[in-house]
Deep mutational scan, measured.
Amino acid sequence: DETGKELVLVLYDYQEKSPREVTIKKGDILTLLNSTNKDWWKIEVNDRQGFVPAAYLKKLD
């Protein structure tokens, strides 16, 4: 059920640097789980959840 889920576009590649982070690729469109922290957003990638720098993402309307 995708209702109410926010999507984000990945602006730059990011390689995870800790187990709490996930790797993302430029151009991916992913589900945003939590954006309350202005610097690190929690997203879902391939059934994995983790954090990436918010500056690497853009919210889609």
Rank of each mutant, 00 (worst) to 15 (best):
V10Q: 01
V8M: 03
T3C: 11
I24A: 05
T3D: 13
D47W: 07
K38R: 13
V52Q: 00
I29E: 03
A55M: 15
Y12W: 12
I29G: 00
R20A: 15
W41R: 00
N46Y: 10
D13E: 05
D61G: 15
V8Y: 08
V45Y: 13
K58D: 06
L7C: 08
S18Y: 06
E44F: 06
D61A: 13
N34A: 08
D1N: 14
K26Y: 04
R48P: 00
T31E: 11
V8I: 05
T3N: 13
Y12L: 11
Q15I: 15
L7R: 15
E44I: 11
K17L: 08
W40L: 04
G50P: 02
D61W: 10
F51D: 04
Y14P: 01
N37G: 11
T31A: 11
A55L: 11
R20K: 11
Q49E: 11
D47N: 14
E16H: 07
L60A: 05
I43Y: 01
L57A: 01
K17V: 08
K5I: 11
L30D: 01
K38S: 12
T23L: 02
L11F: 02
I43C: 04
I24W: 01
A55Q: 12
S18C: 08
Y56S: 09
D13L: 02
D61H: 13
E2T: 15
G27H: 06
D47E: 13
Q49H: 09
T31R: 15
D1S: 13
V52D: 01
V8L: 04
T23H: 04
N34E: 15
G4K: 14
V45I: 12
D39S: 11
A55V: 12
K5Q: 10
S35G: 11
S35D: 14
L9K: 06
D1C: 12
K42M: 14
V45C: 09
R20Y: 15
E6S: 13
V22Y: 03
N46S: 12
W40V: 03
D47R: 09
G27C: 07
A55D: 09
Y12S: 10
N37P: 04
V8K: 00
W41S: 02
N34V: 08
D1F: 14
N37Y: 08
A55T: 13
K17N: 11
E2V: 14
T31S: 09
N37T: 06
L57Y: 01
L57V: 09
A54V: 05
K25F: 12
I24G: 00
L9C: 07
K17D: 06
K26G: 06
N46F: 10
N37Q: 11
I43T: 02
I43R: 00
K5T: 11
K42L: 15
W40C: 06
K42D: 03
K42T: 06
L32P: 00
R20F: 14
P53C: 03
L57F: 02
E2P: 14
V10L: 01
K42A: 08
D1I: 15
D28I: 05
W40P: 00
N46K: 13
T36K: 12
G50E: 04
V8T: 03
D13T: 06
P53K: 03
T31Q: 13
S35Q: 09
L33D: 01
Y56A: 13
D1R: 03
D28R: 05
W40F: 06
D47H: 12
Y12R: 15
W40D: 01
G50S: 04
F51S: 03
L11T: 04
D13Y: 03
L7D: 04
L32F: 03
T23W: 03
K5V: 12
N37S: 10
N46H: 13
K17Q: 15
V8F: 05
Y12D: 11
I24E: 00
V52K: 00
R48S: 06
K38C: 08
L30T: 05
E16S: 15
L32R: 01
L7P: 04
L33M: 07
V10G: 04
Q49Y: 07
L33K: 05
T31V: 15
G4W: 12
K25R: 13
K26L: 05
G50F: 07
K59D: 02
K5A: 11
F51R: 03
E21W: 03
D39F: 14
L11V: 07
Y56D: 02
F51Q: 03
L32Y: 01
Y56F: 10
K17Y: 04
L9F: 08
Y14Q: 01
T31D: 05
T36V: 10
Q49R: 10
L9H: 05
E2H: 15
E2S: 14
G4A: 15
T23C: 04
K5G: 09
Q15V: 14
I29K: 05
P19G: 08
D39K: 11
K38M: 09
W41P: 00
K58M: 13
V8Q: 00
K26D: 02
K25N: 09
G50R: 04
K17G: 07
N46G: 14
Y56G: 06
E16F: 07
T36P: 03
L9Y: 10
I29D: 00
G50D: 02
I29C: 05
G27D: 06
W41Q: 00
I29W: 04
T31P: 14
K17C: 09
N34L: 09
T23N: 05
V45T: 13
T31H: 12
Q49C: 09
